[in-house]
Computed example of a mutant assay.
Amino acid sequence: MEQHAIEIGGELIRFQLRRSQRKTMGISVSPDQAVVVSAPEKADFADIESRVRKKAGWILDKQAEFSTRSVQAAPRQFKPGETFLHLGQQYRLRVDPDRVGVVREGSRIIVGAIRSNESDRIRNRLVRWYMKEARQHLPAALERCLPVFRKEVERRPKLLIRPIKMRWGSYISATHTLILNRSLVQVSPPLIDYVVSHELAHVGHGDHGPAFTAYLTEKMPDWRTRKKALEKLGPELFDAPVLR
């Protein structure tokens, strides 16, 4: 197979070109992040390169997903001493039957009015606490990012915060709604802002093609660095989305 590489939006995509008797062109990404382009024997390389460029967003997304899935995090036990993230900072879990509610205090997240061996109840209380925190902090991220997109996003989208199984966020154009994963409250504000900006960029660009990439780069030049940091951190987060 032939080895090729194309630079697209500052990203270098390396791919293997496999020619055969097939009539159509196809692109696949394997779990080791290798890219294979299958093309007809007589296909012009310019057409092959054009197809790779059009699918660049999809290729990079699949490579990122496989990269994230390759990192296995230890399952949570929801026991005192475990660490949990909040806005990018680590806190150690403490359970105190004499306290009420869930609070951050110093370097700890304290779950009150419960025993340390009640892991299911500890988890449930943390879920409710993280949702409460997300509703406080994620709207602020939208307000931080909107001015950069003010010319293209003329009115503030409706914001919903949800547990999302396979995404950090989503933009629904039909209702002008931005949906953010509640798990984002665990990461640092710059990474939250990346997700918000990514979704706001979809207001004018429905896919992840070259136009979308150029537009997001204009609005947030370092988005790739933030994206990689989020992907690396993802498996360490409690209740984070499972990307496939």
Rank of each mutant, 00 (worst) to 15 (best):
M1I: 04
A5P: 06
E11Q: 15
I13C: 05
F15P: 00
L17I: 05
L17A: 04
R19N: 09
Q21Y: 11
Q21E: 12
R22A: 11
K23E: 13
M25C: 07
G26N: 11
G26D: 08
Q33W: 11
V37G: 01
S38I: 01
S38V: 02
P40F: 04
E41R: 05
E41A: 09
K42P: 07
A43R: 08
A43K: 06
A43E: 11
A46P: 08
D47R: 13
S50G: 11
V52E: 01
K54N: 06
K55W: 07
W58E: 05
W58M: 02
L60M: 15
Q63C: 02
T68E: 11
R69G: 05
R69N: 08
V71Q: 12
A74G: 00
A74R: 10
R76F: 09
R76P: 03
F78Q: 03
K79G: 06
P80W: 08
P80S: 01
E82R: 14
F84E: 12
L85F: 13
L87E: 15
G88P: 14
Q89W: 11
Q89C: 14
Q90R: 14
R94V: 09
P97A: 13
P97L: 10
D98V: 07
D98N: 12
V103C: 01
R104N: 01
E105I: 07
E105F: 09
G106A: 09
S107H: 10
I109A: 01
I110P: 08
I110Q: 07
R115I: 08
N117S: 09
N117Q: 11
S119V: 04
D120N: 09
D120I: 09
R121Y: 03
R121V: 06
R123I: 03
V127L: 12
Y130L: 03
K132R: 01
E133G: 00
R135N: 10
L138K: 02
R144N: 05
C145A: 14
C145Q: 13
L146Y: 07
L146H: 12
P147H: 02
F149Q: 03
R150A: 14
E152Q: 10
V153M: 01
R156T: 11
I161K: 00
K165M: 11
W168F: 10
S173Y: 15
A174W: 14
H176W: 10
H176T: 14
T177I: 14
T177Q: 11
I179F: 12
L180Q: 06
R182L: 14
S183V: 14
V185Y: 06
V187K: 08
V187A: 04
P189N: 08
P190Q: 05
Y194R: 05
V196Q: 12
S197C: 11
E199W: 07
E199M: 04
V203N: 02
G206Y: 06
D207F: 04
D207N: 14
H208E: 05
G209T: 08
G209H: 13
F212D: 02
T213D: 07
A214F: 04
K219D: 01
P221M: 08
R226D: 00
R226Q: 06
R226E: 00
K228R: 11
L230A: 00
L230R: 00
E231Y: 04
G234K: 04
E236R: 10
L237E: 10
